[in-house]
Amino acid sequence: MYYPFFDSTMILLIPALIFSMWAQFKVKSTFAKYSEVGAESGVTAQRVGRLLLDMRGLSGVPIEHISGQLTDHYDPRAKVLRLSDSVETSRSIAAIGVAAHEVGHAIQDQEGYSFLRLRNSIVPGVQFCSTLSMPLFLIGLLLGSLNLLNAGILLFCGVLVFHLVTLPVEFDASARALKLLSETRTLTQEELSGAKSVLDAAALTYVAALVMTVLQLVRLLALRNSRRS
C-alpha cells in the first residue's frame, strides 16, 4: 500500500534536509556572532541604508520597520526597504551588512536588473504552480493517472525555475552591498570580512532551498516512473 507522505523515496530528501538545517544554523550563528561586533563608524544600520540609498539617487525609497528577526527585505512593488527589529537600530557589522544587502536589491530594481525583473514577473505564476503541483501529483498517484502526475511535475518545475532565478539575484545584491560599504568606507576592511561572512551564510539558505527543490523533483520523477512500471 502507498502512503503519500511516507515512502522509500523520502530518503532522497535527507541530504537536503541536513543541508537546510546546517544552513539555518550557519546564518543564525554567524549573524549572532557579528551582531555582537559594533562597527567603528558607530552609525545604525538604518542610517547606513538611508545614506546608501540617497547616494544612489533613491531618496524616494523609504525605510520602514518590520517586526521579527531577519525579516528584512526590499519590496519592489511598494518601492520600500524594510528593516527588522534586530537590524534597524543596531550598530553592528551584521546589521549594517544586511541593510546594505537590501539596498543592493533597491539598486537592482532601479537599474532594471534582468534576473530581478524576471523573478518579479514570475511570482504570480510560481504561486499558482506551488499551490497546485503537489495536490495534482497526489491525486494522480491515488487515481493512477499519468497525465495528472505529469501535470504536477510540470507545475513543480515552475517552482524550481524560481529558485534558480533567485540565486543570481541574491548573490548580486550581496556583491553590490560589499562594494558600496567598501567605497563609502562605512566599514573597515576587517569589518567588511565580517559582513561578507554574514551575507555568505545568508546565501546558503537560498542554495539549500534550491537543493531541496531539485531533490524533491527527482523524488517526484521516481514516483512517477514507479507508477509506469
Rank of each mutant, 00 (worst) to 15 (best):
R47L: 15
R228Y: 00
E40C: 01
M21G: 15
D85V: 02
P135D: 02
R117H: 01
L118C: 08
I139N: 07
T131L: 11
L52P: 06
G97I: 04
N120W: 06
L138P: 02
L160R: 05
R224E: 12
R82M: 15
E64D: 13
L199A: 01
R50Y: 00
L204E: 02
A195E: 09
R119E: 02
S226G: 00
A106C: 01
E64N: 12
S8G: 00
S130A: 14
L204S: 03
I139S: 01
S197K: 12
V218A: 06
T9F: 15
M55Q: 14
Y206N: 02
L178D: 01
V214P: 00
K196D: 12
V123S: 10
K28Q: 12
C129I: 00
M212H: 12
I122T: 03
M55V: 06
E102H: 01
I139Y: 09
A95S: 10
L187M: 03
C157P: 09
L204H: 11
N225E: 15
R117L: 13
V61L: 07
G57A: 04
S92D: 09
A195F: 03
I66C: 13
H65W: 15
F19P: 03
L70A: 14
Q69Y: 07
R185I: 06
L221R: 05
L160K: 03
A151Q: 12
L155C: 06
S86H: 14
F5T: 14
L154I: 10
L155N: 10
E88Q: 14
N150C: 11
V48G: 08
E170D: 04
L142K: 08
V211Q: 03
T184H: 10
D75G: 10
F171I: 09
A32S: 14
S84E: 13
E183M: 06
L116F: 05
A173I: 04
D75Y: 02
Y34N: 08
E183N: 08
E40T: 12
Q189M: 13
S59Y: 04
V98D: 09
A95T: 13
L167V: 04
L199I: 09
L215F: 12
V161E: 11
A208N: 05
H163G: 10
V27A: 08
S130E: 01
L187R: 04
L217T: 10
L149G: 14
T44D: 05
L142V: 10
P4F: 02
L52I: 00
L199Y: 05
L52W: 10
L181T: 08
V43T: 07
D54R: 11
C157M: 15
A195W: 09
S133F: 13
L142N: 01
H65Y: 15
G140T: 08
E40M: 03
N147Q: 15
L192A: 04
S121I: 05
